[in-house]
Simulated assay, not measured.
Amino acid sequence: MTSGLDWRGRVGDIWAAEWRRTDRSLADLSRHLNAAIAAVAPEQGLALDIGSGAGATSLALHAARPGLCVTGVDLSPDLVTVAQGRAADEGGGADEAHLRFRCDDAIRLAAREGPFDLFVSRHGVMFFPDSVAAFRGLRQAATDDAAFVFSCFDERGHNGFATLADAVIGHTPPTPAGYEPGPFAFADSHRVADWLEQAGWAPGAAARLSFEYVVGAGEDPVADAIAFLSRIGPAARAIAAATPDERDRIVKALGRALSDYRVEDRVVLPASAWIWRAHARGGAG
């Protein structure tokens, strides 16, 4: 489980250092998510990007709706610093009133600075300790016609970065009996719809999306993929915990497995995610 403290510390630091490769891995998904966001985003008002990471979704939303005031919020100071730097470099000279990034808890910031007209997230909602309470907090900080668009991973078995790591390590983690924050916490669409409804949101039909998860590229894409997966994801955790001999075995097996997914100068793993659209329902719940 990745806790808030992890994102504020070691995990957040690694994701900040790897932001270019993580953005690359999710680029195919992001195209679809950004289109879904743009389809409901107002021209003006307030938007909050939950778990904004290195800022890709906030930057895309700002480009599509320059009159909208977009705030990206993340627990990791290093990721927020990266996002702020990208906004300065890529954001078209946006002033802080229309694009800004804050290191804070998303629910507390929403309560303090709302009501918001739009909530968005690229894979940032799966780590709340209590998803219903988090969704309810967002609803209470929303306008009565607010929209909510977010993505989350589908089942573990539909995502090659996890199944490949399981095969290489020789162990598949058991499915949690109940809710447990983490990458696959929102895999069950029926359960997520129920959480949204309990919290005062009216969920639309979730769209299941198969996408290309690019883990390696360049002159030696397999080596690039090994470097990336040795830093982020289930293989990284196993490598970090292994003895030197076991670590060497895992890395070699990882390289052999990744070679099967090389397509010219890229290594592409199959992946699957949900894109959710919801709207505020009635008064704040």
Rank of each mutant, 00 (worst) to 15 (best):
Y179F: 07
A193M: 14
A227N: 13
L196R: 11
H171G: 04
A202G: 13
A238E: 05
A217R: 14
G178S: 08
F211Y: 11
T163P: 10
A165P: 13
A162Y: 01
W201H: 02
P174T: 01
G255V: 03
Q198I: 01
A193H: 10
R191D: 06
G255I: 06
E219I: 06
L209G: 09
D224V: 03
Y261A: 04
S189I: 02
P203Y: 00
D260Y: 00
A193Q: 15
P183E: 10
A227C: 09
V263L: 09
E212C: 10
I239Q: 08
R231I: 00
A206E: 06
R237G: 07
A217Q: 14
A217H: 08
A206K: 12
P174C: 03
R237D: 10
E197R: 12
R231D: 03
A225M: 13
A202M: 15
I232N: 06
R247S: 04
R191V: 05
R249E: 12
A187R: 07
V251D: 05
P234A: 03
T163A: 04
W195T: 03
R256D: 13
P270D: 05
I169V: 14
S230Y: 00
V267L: 09
G178H: 04
G178M: 05
E197Q: 11
D248S: 13
V268S: 05
E219Q: 12
Y213G: 05
E197K: 10
A238I: 07
G178R: 13
E155S: 12
H190R: 15
E180C: 08
G178P: 13
S259H: 08
V192C: 07
Y179M: 10
A227E: 13
I239A: 05
D245Y: 01
V192K: 11
I226D: 02
G170C: 10
P173H: 03
A206I: 06
S210D: 15
R249M: 12
H190F: 00
Q198P: 06
R256S: 10
D154L: 03
Y213W: 07
A257S: 09
L209R: 15
L254C: 02
D245A: 08
A162S: 09
A236R: 14
G233R: 11
E264S: 07
G170S: 12
H158P: 05
E219W: 00
G170K: 14
A223Y: 02
D248V: 00
K252C: 06
R247H: 02
W195P: 14
S210E: 15
P181V: 02
A167K: 12
L209K: 14
G182S: 09
A205L: 14
G182C: 08
